[in-house]
Design a binder for these strands. Structure first.
Lengths: 153, 153
DNA sequence: CGATTGTCGTTCGAATTTGAACGACAACTC
DNA sequence: GAGTTGTCGTTCAAATTCGAACGACAATCG
């Protein structure tokens, strides 16, 4: 630890590019969603995950893990979505402690309405600018890091 | 817009991997910095940018652009760093509206102390897991998106 | 020069995030 | 089955974020 391995120019460039890009893209997505539907990005992600889930429902903790936010942040955001009528809460049948977040019909409609614009942003700034090889390389790279981070905690 | 181009399986995998990984890594970095030095990630980035800058100083707006936070967030964080004695504010000689954030000697020392641990996290979860080709591919990909985002606003 | 237009950094209010603490229930162990 | 340990989701306080509005100064153009 007394002689840390610094990042060389290539590594530094990679890290800075990743860092800036992820923040810039996040900002842009947030802006688009807010303007188009009054949704935050975490809120949108919650809707997407629920729509993909069986019964259009998920346990709170599982949902938090998927969206990558703290449990308390998820509690708050599901509350917001509930107020908006896009999500409902049910007590889990198999576990009385548990809560199931369920996507409502209105939630489905909202998602259908909003998704195209969102996908368009992701496409136009990221996906469509990358070759198939770059896309694969990025996925591989991201997965390695994701696995490391998920298993280390 | 009536027939949006959805993401196919490969594209979806790429996007989800990128999204989750960036959030997970951000969380891990935040945790490490807080534990090691009581710094937030934006605060650390401010110190790094200033250390790299001529005269160890930068204009507020330029700094905000570099770190990718809003101007108001930067005002707040520079205030925090000023309280901690790591940064000072100077009025810009060439422009009376402007403010220069300057890294203090203590700021330099703090950075020297904290940087190794931070780099270690970036290395062990991201950089060291990628081959040279993957590193290059990621950099290229990120740069394309970054350029697009920076020039579109 | 005087007026307009633009940029700079700050302030403000509202919204959001996080970790810690908590009560309720589940899963094991003996 | 009682006791212990662990998990689930929520609540709370504190910190941080953002955009909009603002006053101060700069730059441009007549």
């Amino acid at each position: 630890m007394t002689d840390p391995r610094w990042l060389d120019a290539t590594e530094m460039a990679a890290w800075r590019a990743f860092l800036s890009t992820s923040h810039l893209l996040e900002r842009r997505i947030e802006e688009q969603l807010k303007a188009a539907a009054g949704l935050t990005h975490p809120q949108y992600e919650i809707l997407v995950r629920l729509a993909d889930a069986p019964e259009r429902s998920m346990r709170m903790t599982e949902l938090a893990r998927g969206v990558v936010v703290s449990k308390s942040a998820l509690t708050y955001q599901v509350g917001q979505l509930e107020k908006a009528g896009l999500v409902e809460r049910t007590t889990c049948p198999s576990d009385d402690r548990g809560v199931l977040a369920v996507l409502t019909d209105e939630g489905v409609r909202c998602l259908r309405r909003v998704a195209p614009g969102h996908v368009q942003v992701v496409r136009s700034y990221l996906i469509d600018r990358l070759s198939r090889e770059e896309l694969h390389a990025m996925t591989t790279a991201m997965r390695k890091t994701e696995d490391a981070l998920r298993s280390s905690v």
